[in-house]
């Protein structure tokens, strides 16, 4: 017979089983990524659901034995780029000399790295840190999330994003600088508010 598949119950059961075993366990890491991408729980929930439904639909395209988490991650990233990407914000200009000067001062006054970190960013609210990450352009944000928050190696991140390791390195470099500028700016603004 020439016709098959959509109505074959055994195949469907097997597929469902494989999917439960291989894909579902990665839900939490994807949920966190969705949160960082979209910046709010409602869109994150939608994006997560869309990702898993697409993954199920395209399950036969997943090569068994390869990195399922990376595959799911790419589906999520593409879905996000297609649906949610906002207009790219131009990073606000922060004078790096100002940061350096400030850093030099607190470095002299600080007793250790913790103290230094506290003086540098201690004024920041958690929300501001989240916003600073969400506001990074997507390509930098994704790499910062993968490497600095999730703790993946450059090699793993390169597989997730599907690009060379050198690209991961340069995006991480740039991403950290953008993040540093933004955090510094927020901390400073807030520092003035608190001290006034």
């Amino acid at each position: 017979m020439l016709f098959a598949s959509p109505t074959n119950n055994r195949d469907t059961e097997q597929k469902h089983e494989d999917f439960q075993r291989e894909a579902i366990p990665h839900m939490d890491i994807l949920y966190n990524y969705a949160l960082r991408l979209t910046g709010n729980t409602e869109d994150a929930n939608d994006l997560l659901q869309e990702t898993f439904l697409k993954a199920y639909r395209f399950w036969d395209k997943f090569e068994q034995g390869t990195n399922c988490r990376a595959w799911l991650f790419r589906i999520m990233r593409n879905s996000y780029i297609n649906r949610y990407r906002k207009a790219v914000k131009t990073p606000e200009h922060v004078d790096y000399n100002e940061i350096k000067e400030f850093y030099n001062t607190i470095r002299e006054q600080s007793t250790d790295a913790n103290d230094l970190s506290e003086r540098l960013y201690g004024q920041l609210l958690d929300d501001q840190v989240t916003t600073a990450i969400t506001d990074l352009p997507e390509e930098f944000r994704t790499v910062v999330i993968l490497c600095d928050i999730e703790g993946f190696t450059y090699e793993e991140a390169a597989e997730f994003v599907d690009c060379p390791i050198g690209t991961i390195r340069s995006r991480l470099h740039r991403g950290r600088k953008l993040l540093r500028d933004k955090l510094f700016k927020y901390a400073h603004e807030r520092g003035y508010e608190v001290n006034d």
Binding site: Y31, R36, Y121, I133, I149
Partner: peptide, 19 residues
């Protein structure tokens, strides 16, 4: 040092959630 501090700071500040 600024890059290293920023990396560490972000990591400690971001709460990881379960679905």
């Amino acid at each position: 040092e600024l890059d290293a501090l920023t990396k560490d700071f972000v990591k400690t500040k971001i709460t990881r959630h379960t679905t």
